[in-house]
């Protein structure tokens, strides 16, 4: 099996894993969940860093820099806002 095919396998299996993980979440947690998964796709920051590192010329540098800023805002903002929401879910004694 080629490396590309192997990656494709992982992709398809991840789709099913995502379905399984999410389908059991109670609706009360849907908002934090949306926000939490939103933070996870902030991993695009890695892509931004790789692209900026490999950038040539002004335009690519500028685009890479903006991508890093946006990705970083997505990651850090996403995890922080989700945590801020979740810390409020308390059970009273």
């Amino acid at each position: 099996m080629t490396a590309e095919m192997l990656i494709f396998f992982i992709f398809v299996l991840s789709i099913f894993l995502g379905f399984e993980l999410i389908s059991k979440v109670p609706s009360m947690l849907h908002t934090p969940l949306m926000s939490g998964t939103n933070a996870i796709h902030g991993i695009i920051l890695l892509g931004g860093m790789l692209a900026l590192a490999a950038a040539d010329g002004f335009i690519q540098h500028a685009a890479g820099f903006v991508a890093v800023v946006l990705g970083s805002a997505n990651v850090f903002g996403g995890f922080m806002v989700t945590d801020r929401m979740l810390q409020m879910f308390k059970r009273k004694k």
Binding site: I7, I10, F11, S14, I15, F16, L17, G18, F19, L21, I22, S23, H30, L33, M34, T37, N38, I40, H41, I43, I44, L46, G47, L50, A51
Partner: peptide
């Protein structure tokens, strides 16, 4: 993007979010 850059963590994380968002 993960496919294009060949970064497995991006592929897995992105796909998990993709399928979870669809379910939601």
């Amino acid at each position: 993007d993960g496919f294009a850059i060949n970064n497995i963590a991006m592929i897995i994380a992105g796909t998990l979010v993709g399928s979870s968002g669809t379910i939601l």
